[in-house]
Amino acid sequence: MAARSLLDENRQIKRAIELINLGARLQVLESETDLPYERLLRLYKEVAGRSPSKGQLPFSTDWFMTWQPNIHSSLFLNIYEYLQKSTDIESIDAISKGWRLYRDEVSVHGVEPLLSITRAWRLVRFVDSGMLCLTRCKKCGGRFVTHTFELDQQFTCGLCEPPARAGKALRGGSIH
C-alpha cells in the first residue's frame, strides 16, 4: 500500500465517523473513503456500538417515485444541489450536510425523515449516472425527482396533484 498522508487519513476517518453517526451503511463508507475494509469495520463497531447491517443496498429507482418518498427525496435533492451550486464542498460533504438540513426541516413539521442517509447517497448516485433528475413542475415551479426521460413540459408534481389515496394514512410522522 502506498504511504498514506496522516492528515488525509485523519480527514477520512472524521468523514467516516460523521457518516456512521448519521446512520450510513458500510457500503457508503467503502465507496466514499479510501480506508481499508477492516479499519472501517472496526470503526463502525466502535462508533455505532454494534456490527453493521448485512445484505445488499436497495438498488431500484422505483422507491423514489412513490408519493411520500418522492416528497422526501425531492426536498433532500434540492438542498443538496443548492449546497453544491453555491459553495465549493465535496459531494459527500454536501450529502451529509444536506441530509442534516433535510432531517431538521421535516422534523420541524412533525414528519419523520423517511429518506435515510444511505438512500440519500444512493439518490445522488442515481442522479450522477443520469437515471434520475429533478424536473420542474409546470404548476408550482418546484423541482421534483423524476426519471430522466420524463416529458418535462407536461410534468405536474405529486403535491400539486396528489394521487387519490395520498396522505390518508393516519400514522404519526407521515405527510398528510
Binding site: I71, L75, E105, H109, C140, L159
Partner: peptide, 18 residues
C-alpha cells in the same frame, strides 16, 4: 387534520430557488 403537505411543498419550492 393539520396538513403538513403544503408546508413541505413550500420547503421544496424554496430550496429549489437559487
Amino acid at each position: 387534520l393539520d396538513g403538513n403537505a403544503s408546508r413541505l411543498h413550500a420547503s421544496i419550492v424554496m430550496a429549489g430557488n437559487f
